[in-house]
């Protein structure tokens, strides 16, 4: 450990190692965060208006009385719950599948991961074509009712297209985290449970899953964050439609601010989003840390 005594030397060390990154961090994260809070309770928009004209919680009241905000939150929660469950179930399943020690599993593993490499904008456009053209053509050709109308045209199925694409995109990533967890399990524990006559399924439920709680903590945390904040896929796949039914919260905030120019109200909604995400993340990690068991 280093101990500079003189103030001038301490400043020099700080200047060399900490000043630039911390200045940039301050300007890019802290300043907008603080100004963002001020924006919601004064008439200031960062551009015009007075910083000192306090308007109380008007922006928050407006935000919560906007029916579109409520319906966007409901759609987002629905999307998050389904995406969270399906991504992790599929991701865990894929991890089990490619750790059987069979030939070709490396190849399958890489192909399951591939969608993760590509940005949400491009993936959304690809699936827009699949849902509106390819599936419809199959549906018409084979007379399958569920495919003969584009899923993007109906509010109920349009949300499902988003869920499907997100699960398809993220499950390969979660698979990698679960693989790392599976590899970390002590081999002797598995052998012991086999000697005790445990079936493969029993071994999974009684030994593997309890020992993999840390992997679940990480995967659930990442899926929660990703799905609450999804924007790119939302924009390119459904663009919020039809009739704003799939306008998830990140897109709703974007629209509020940059399309309708309601900065104060938009920022109030953005802070609500921050509080929701932070509360859920802290609760989730807190609960799961308690569930972790010692091997």
């Amino acid at each position: 450990m280093y101990h500079e005594k003189k103030i001038s030397e301490r400043l020099k060390v700080f200047g060399l190692f900490g000043f630039i990154p911390l200045l940039v961090f301050f300007l890019v994260m802290i300043v907008p965060f603080v100004i963002g809070i001020l924006m919601t309770v004064t008439t200031w928009t960062g551009l015009t208006g007075s910083l000192f004209e306090f308007i109380g919680f008007k922006n928050f009241i407006n935000a919560f009385s906007d029916p579109n905000f409520g319906s966007s939150l409901v759609a987002t929660f629905k999307y998050v719950v389904y995406t969270l469950v399906l991504t992790n179930v599929l991701g865990f399943g894929l991890a089990l599948l490619v750790t059987q020690g069979r030939k070709g599993q490396e190849f399958f593993k890489l192909s399951f991961f591939t969608p993760n490499l590509i940005g949400g904008i491009i993936l959304g456009f690809i699936w827009q074509f699949i849902f509106s053209r390819a599936f419809v053509s199959v549906g018409v050709e084979l007379g399958w009712g569920i495919f003969s109308v584009s899923w993007l045209a109906n509010p109920e199925t349009a949300l499902w297209t988003l869920i499907i694409v997100s699960v398809w995109q993220s499950s390969g990533y979660m698979m990698l985290i679960y693989i790392a967890g599976l590899m970390g399990i002590d081999k002797s524990l598995m052998e012991a449970s086999l000697l005790d006559g445990a079936s493969a399924f029993k071994q999974l439920v009684k030994v593997k899953i309890p020992l993999m709680i840390p992997s679940f903590t990480i995967s659930l945390f990442l899926t929660l964050q990703r799905s609450f904040l999804v924007y790119d896929t939302n924009l390119s796949l459904t663009d919020g439609g039809p009739f704003r039914s799939t306008e998830l919260i990140a897109m709703h905030i974007y629209q509020e601010a940059f399309t309708y120019q309601r900065f104060g109200e938009g920022q109030a909604k953005a802070l609500v989003l921050f509080i929701i995400v932070a509360l859920i993340a802290v609760t989730q990690v807190g609960i799961m840390k308690k569930m972790e068991v010692e091997a």
Binding site: M29, V31, P32, F33, I35, G36, M39, G46, Q225, F228, L229, Y231, I249, A250, I253, Y254, A257, F263, G266, Q267, A270, L271, L273, F274, V277
Partner: peptide
């Protein structure tokens, strides 16, 4: 902190 909570300011 999500980017969406910072982007407007």
């Amino acid at each position: 902190i999500p980017f969406q909570s910072l982007m407007i300011p």
